[in-house]
Simulated scan of single mutants.
Amino acid sequence: MSKALLKEVKNNFLETFNAAPLLIFSPGRINIIGEHTDYNDGFVFPAAVDKGIAAAIQKSDTGTSTAIALDLESTINFELNKIKPSKEGCWENYVFGVFAEIQNRNKVIGDFNIIFRGNIPGGAGMSSSAALENSVVFGLNELFNLGLTKDEMILISQKAEHNYVGVNCGIMDQYASMFGIKDHALHLDCRTLESSSYKLDFKEHQLMLINTNVKHSLSDSAYNDRRSACESISKLLGVEALRDATEPDLEQIIDKVTPTNYQKALFVIQENARTIKAAKAIENNDLELLGSLIYQSHAGLSDQYKVSCKELDFLVAQAKKNKHVLGARMMGGGFGGCTINLIAKTAAKAFAETASKAYKNKFDKDCSVYFIELSQGTHLVE
Rank of each mutant, 00 (worst) to 15 (best):
R329A: 00
C338Y: 01
E283H: 12
R274P: 11
L289W: 10
E271A: 13
D366K: 08
Y262N: 07
K310Y: 04
A265R: 06
N322F: 12
I294K: 08
K256L: 15
N361D: 15
L301S: 01
D255A: 12
A358T: 05
N361Q: 15
N284Y: 06
N261S: 10
V307G: 07
C338V: 10
A265H: 14
R329M: 02
G327C: 03
G333N: 10
A278T: 11
L287E: 02
D313Q: 08
A319M: 08
L289Y: 07
S292R: 07
L326T: 04
G332C: 11
S308E: 14
N341H: 01
T339L: 00
F363A: 12
G300Q: 11
Q318S: 09
L289G: 02
V369R: 10
V307L: 03
T260D: 15
M331Q: 10
N361A: 10
G336P: 03
F335W: 13
H324T: 03
I269S: 09
N285C: 01
I340G: 03
E288V: 07
N285A: 14
D364P: 11
G332W: 01
G333I: 05
Q318L: 00
T258Y: 10
V316N: 00
G334H: 05
D364M: 09
K321F: 03
K357G: 03
R329S: 00
I294T: 10
K323I: 03
G336L: 01
G337N: 01
L301P: 04
K264I: 12
I282R: 01
P259C: 15
K320F: 01
G337E: 06
A355V: 10
D255C: 07
A281D: 01
K362I: 08
C367D: 14
K360Q: 14
Y305P: 05
V325S: 13
A355D: 05
E353L: 14
A358Q: 10
